[in-house]
Design a protein around this nucleic acid. Sequence first.
DNA 1: CGAGCGATTGAAAAGACTCAACCACCGTGG
DNA 2: CCACGGTGGTTGAGTCTTTTCAATCGCTCG
Lengths: 229, 229
Amino acid sequence: MNKNDFRSITCASCLQRKENLLSGISDTELMQMDNHKGCSFYKKNQSLFLEGSFPRGVFCIHHGKVKIYKRGEEGKEQIIHIAKEGELIGFRAMFAENKYSVSAETLEESTICFIQKDDFLSLLDANPTLRNRILKEMSQELSDRAEFITNMAQKSVRQRLAFSLLLLKEVYGEKPINLSREDLANFVGTATETLIRLLKEFKEEGLVETNVRKIYVSDAKRLLMLVGN
Amino acid sequence: MNKNDFRSITCASCLQRKENLLSGISDTELMQMDNHKGCSFYKKNQSLFLEGSFPRGVFCIHHGKVKIYKRGEEGKEQIIHIAKEGELIGFRAMFAENKYSVSAETLEESTICFIQKDDFLSLLDANPTLRNRILKEMSQELSDRAEFITNMAQKSVRQRLAFSLLLLKEVYGEKPINLSREDLANFVGTATETLIRLLKEFKEEGLVETNVRKIYVSDAKRLLMLVGN
DNA sequence: CGAGCGATTGAAAAGACTCAACCACCGTGG
DNA sequence: CCACGGTGGTTGAGTCTTTTCAATCGCTCG
């Protein structure tokens, strides 16, 4: 989309919304939300929020990709999740009435809306369907993270890379995976050099194709076998 | 407590409940819950539920400890969490209307109550305070797991052991940590042999004392420094 | 008292990391 | 227009942590 069009985005017309957590809310609520929300254009590598700061609302990705990460010792990033269009981010810390435990930053040019904390909470209060969706969403994420932990603990870097590529394929859909080697390494949980070497092996084995930053998964089936389990 | 007393446990009189997610519910609701809940005695190493099965309600630990784990490739366990008295378990999968993504098993003799799915859901529906607590709880767990992932990805086994011991110290309170070497290894995310060797080092460095299965943390401060970050 | 499981130790092998150097591409400013 | 600097990507070599496998020990329970 044209980067100057973002002011015209309304929740009512937003195709992303129709598919996401915020589907199934009433027209009145929609209108109310539209009046209160803000929508901005973000350049690549712009920060949405930082670990340790206090949430003032939730972000709704209209277009683009956002990495959710945590800094470990020495400041090394661990990417926990890569959010795509349609996803709501930053509501967990808001519920916990706590600081953000993770940071969020765009991976590419994005348009992202912002809904104030109070507006969102009152929406939640009034809307049992939304509540249930949020609960369900959080449960799913909890489950995903349990798997993530298990993978980290038990799988080799090679297996984790295979797993991550399959995950990212879902996130990027038609388009090729487009991440810096460092970000990919920080997602897999390994050193950049190791990642590069393994990626080269995968390429030689015909599992993926690469073109500079872009990665095309060419044999998902074999990758899946590689993951094991 | 005497293992035959468990039939007399009521939510109304339960000291655990007063501290946990289920505090702040009305007397009527309490009574209703008491009429519907069941309470059982569990031996050590008894299963509460298995990954892949469907939830039929939530468990409330009155006394004892429960490991929440996931099986990875080759069937190796990864312990995600160790729940203690007062904790509610198994509600995530219930919200997600999905199979359990993890399994739960007692680590010691325990008394655990069970609340039917429908009863719990209607309680939730009627009780905004409870709802908010659950949201908050889940948010906190999401945050814990992000940290867990980051630790797994970036810290050495030695650091993870230090971290785990500190966590377990909280769980066990006054009492010494009491886990098999294998369970501890599966929590830290390492091989049993490696765990034993590191534990020996910790003992030699005066960080912990051990007595068969029991582990006493003797220098929490130094352990914390070891964890780094 | 014997079986069996959990705990422990040793030695060797493997996987992954670190460090250092080098390359390639890109935008900038002279 | 080209040299320059910088960033991100790649490669090599050596090191170290951690795993694996095998063997032994020791306690507990029947």
